[in-house]
Write a protein that binds this DNA or RNA. Structure first.
Length: 443
RNA sequence: GUGGUAGUAGCUCAGCUGGUUAGAGCAUCAGAUUGUGGAUCUGAGGGUCGCCGGUUCAAAUCCGGUCUACCACCCCA
């Protein structure tokens, strides 16, 4: 036998059970997004390499599935959807209805070593609001993100949305006299601070703050202790920086919507969330698993400069993404993976005589044409075996087309859950079946 | 890219310090069962023990490499 060819590392097969779970997740995402008035879009899986390097810099190439196509073009499978979206909206900036509320469910690819929750191919639920710079857009996205998780049965005991603000951070650091470059360096140090030795953090900060490093770290500790808007306001007031005080209006607006939608239980202010990339410009948020590892489930934020960076008219933008892999993990650990076995409505049992087969097959075809799912044994099989198949396939109703029944112009229906049986004239097949499917048959 | 752990049937695993023809449960298929499913019993199929090489009279077992998975770094758009 030839060597068995497996899936590439980080890629998955989706046999029916896995596919059913995937589609279940997609369905919830789609339903929720539509219920929020978002419109679905999609884009090419393969894009010019520059689209991604333009946004994130040449360093990301090491994590891209990129190659040269036969026309000599540098191309890459998409690692995310945001640049595609920005292009699409930017190119149609003059004519799209604003605010743009769009979502996508897209397969994305990243060439990196896989581990739990991280594959090389995964599906992302993306939602974005463009053309609306105010906090209302961010609030709408937070709300959608929360509702999309709730639609799976997840609640505040399972996850928490941690909200932060890149604007607040930058103004704070500017207020301390840093320039943009230094401020960004400090952010990346702070971002990692939770995971590394405090002494190391101190060493990293020393060249920037000198002897004030200790004082800075104390201030950071106070800042990170903030968990709600009232505390944030108190912290800002104590600092006495005018720009930060101004910024509080946006926070109040954000939480006015979150409170109004009764989502406060899901949200927490957490300024330790900085998120890696420099292109975030305002509110940012991450959703974390509440129990156990505290893995990140979703993340997003405002990226007002990206559309312009891609060469279009400036347009405010904010968005988030959720991956299918971590979500499926979370659902599994929370015991919220539903039973996805989808049984057929009817299984038609038929005798092996020509008349029985003919009548049975006609019934199958009729039911199917009306959208009632129906299955049968492809090759003539013993009755007992056919019932077994009906059971295995999860049929709700078994229809029996046998010699005894046909001689009287009827067929028999058996409710596979109750074991109850009833007969009906073949002429009224559809009505009989619909009625029994709706109400079952008493034993 | 770096390091750690693991890999035996579709799944979960057993296989003692190397020793005939590699096992079990579940699952699948068939029969008991040619007009009634879930249960039970009987049987079958399914493995080059991840792959390549080495040591040995002899390797699933020991050694080296490699691939893959998981975990921790790096990164996280």
């Amino acid at each position: 036998m030839a060597s068995k060819i497996q899936t590439l590392p980080g890629f998955r097969d989706f046999p029916p059970e896995a596919c059913a779970l995937r589609n279940f997740i997609f369905r919830k995402w789609r339903q929720t997004a539509i219920s929020f008035g978002f419109s679905e879009y999609d884009g090419p899986v393969l894009e010019p390499l520059e689209l991604f390097t333009e946004k994130s810099g040449p360093e990301i190439v090491s994590q891209l599935f990129n190659f040269e196509d036969k026309g000599g073009r540098a191309v890459s499978l998409r690692p995310e959807l945001t640049p595609t979206l920005a292009r699409m909206v930017g190119a149609n900036a003059g004519s799209v209805r604003r605010p743009v509320k769009w979502f996508a469910i897209a397969e994305c690819f990243r060439f990196e070593k896989q581990q739990k929750g991280r594959k090389r191919s995964f599906y992302q639920f993306n939602a974005d609001v463009l053309g609306e710079p105010g906090p209302g857009a961010d609030a709408e996205l937070v709300a959608l993100c929360i509702q999309s998780l709730r639609s799976f049965g997840l609640g505040p005991q399972h996850f928490v949305v941690r909200l932060s603000d890149r604007t607040l951070w930058m103004e704070f650091l500017f207020g301390l006299g840093l320039d943009e470059e230094k401020a960004i360096r400090v952010l990346s140090i702070v971002d990692k601070a939770e995971r590394v030795d405090p002494e190391y953090t101190k060493e990293q900060l020393a060249p920037i703050f000198g002897e004030k490093t200790g004082a800075f770290l104390e201030e950071i500790a106070r800042m990170k202790a903030v968990t709600n808007v009232a505390e944030l306001e108190a912290w800002v007031a104590a600092l006495g920086m005018a720009k930060l005080t101004e910024r509080m209006a946006a926070w109040k607006e954000l939480f006015a919507v979150i409170d109004g939608m009764e989502l406060s239980d899901f949200c927490r202010v957490d300024l330790s969330i900085v998120r890696g990339l420099a292109y975030y410009t305002g509110f940012v948020f991450e959703v974390f698993e509440r129990s156990g590892e505290g893995r990140a489930i979703a993340g997003g934020g405002r990226y007002d400069k990206l559309v312009e960076k891609l060469g279009y008219q400036p347009m405010a933008a904010s968005g988030f993404a959720v991956g299918d892999v971590t979500l499926a993990d979370l659902l599994a650990t929370a015991g919220l993976t539903p039973n996805l076995i989808e049984g057929v409505d009817c299984f038609v049992v038929m005798g092996s005589s020509e008349k029985e087969r003919t009548e049975g097959l006609r019934a199958v075809a009729t039911l199917r044409s009306l959208g009632i799912s129906a299955d049968y044994a492809i090759k003539p099989t013993a009755f007992g075996k056919q019932f077994k198949m009906a059971d295995t396939l999860g049929a709700r109703l078994t229809l029996i087309f046998g010699g005894d029944e046909l001689a009287r112009g009827v067929f028999k229906m058996r409710d596979m859950a109750t074991g109850g049986e009833a007969e009906g004239p073949i002429a009224d097949l559809v009505d009989g079946v619909k009625m029994r499917l709706a109400h079952g048959i008493e034993k």
